[in-house]
Simulated assay, not measured.
Amino acid sequence: MATILLVDDDPNILQLVRIHLSEQGYRVFEAKDGMAALDILKKEPCDLAIVDVMMPYMDGYTLTKEIRVQYDIPIILLTAKSQIEDKEQGFQAGTDDYLVKPFEPKELSFRIKALLRRYDSQGDEGIFHFGETTINKKSYEVQIGSRTFLLPLKEFELLYYLASNPRQVFSREHLIEQIWGLDFQGDERTVDVHIKRLRERFSKVTDDFQIKTVRGVGYMVEAQQS
């Protein structure tokens, strides 16, 4: 069974979630702040992290960014905040999911299982080659010739999704659902902003692939075959 890192400065939440997850067979490591969580991750391989937003020393947003840079594991943010701006900040930090307190432990379990399935389904696949360009899902890197690009999480996932389905046109609504999830409460302009950033990064660097706009429909990638 999977190993889960639980990070929260509320001992009641730690106990409630630990008991619930342990009963389902998960191995659980607990940390009361972000610094302690990073120490655990250095020593123990974890399959998923559940992170509270409001914590001393290092808040959940900062911890999420740190985890995302160093480890390829799914993250669920737990928070008492339910404003769209707070959720946006969480997703920008790199979280995969967001659960507002108070929550039902069963709902947390559903979300954990869904994320673990999503990450496990990647398996040994996840590397695409177009000309001199390699898009690597395992390392979240784009390599073009001798240059390596490390992208923000959602930018990479958007590029990876489009590149894995070359010449297929996707609507903004579809891309929101696939990359940001059904719970995302922002608008479709988020896709446009991320596409613009990707074009700015790569349009002058390589001709191996291009992100094209299909007017009135959405976006697609045209790529050279290796």
Rank of each mutant, 00 (worst) to 15 (best):
Y161I: 12
E107L: 11
K87T: 02
S226E: 12
A37V: 10
D52L: 10
R189I: 01
R189C: 06
S203Y: 00
M55W: 00
E88C: 07
C46H: 04
L198C: 08
L21A: 06
Y119F: 14
V191S: 01
P152Q: 11
L41R: 00
D86R: 04
K212S: 03
S82D: 10
D8R: 01
F202D: 07
F149K: 01
K87A: 04
R201K: 13
L63S: 09
E188P: 09
G131I: 06
L78M: 00
H174N: 14
L151D: 11
D183M: 07
P102K: 09
D52M: 02
Q89N: 10
T206I: 09
K101Q: 11
A93R: 05
G123E: 15
D96L: 03
A163G: 15
G25A: 04
K42M: 03
Q122N: 12
Q168A: 09
Q70Y: 05
F149V: 09
T62R: 15
S203E: 01
V221P: 08
A2V: 10
E88T: 14
N136E: 12
I75P: 06
L150D: 09
E141N: 14
K154T: 15
M1V: 11
D39E: 15
P45T: 02
L115S: 06
P105I: 00
V100P: 07
Y160M: 14
D52T: 11
T79Q: 02
V214S: 04
Q70G: 09
D52K: 03
I84P: 09
L48R: 08
R68M: 08
E155A: 08
I73P: 04
Q122W: 06
D86G: 06
A2M: 03
A2H: 12
F156W: 01
K65V: 11
L78T: 02
I76V: 14
I4Q: 03
D59W: 02
A2S: 14
S121I: 01
F202S: 04
L151F: 13
L21V: 08
I127G: 03
L162I: 12
L77W: 01
E107P: 05
N165K: 15
V53K: 10
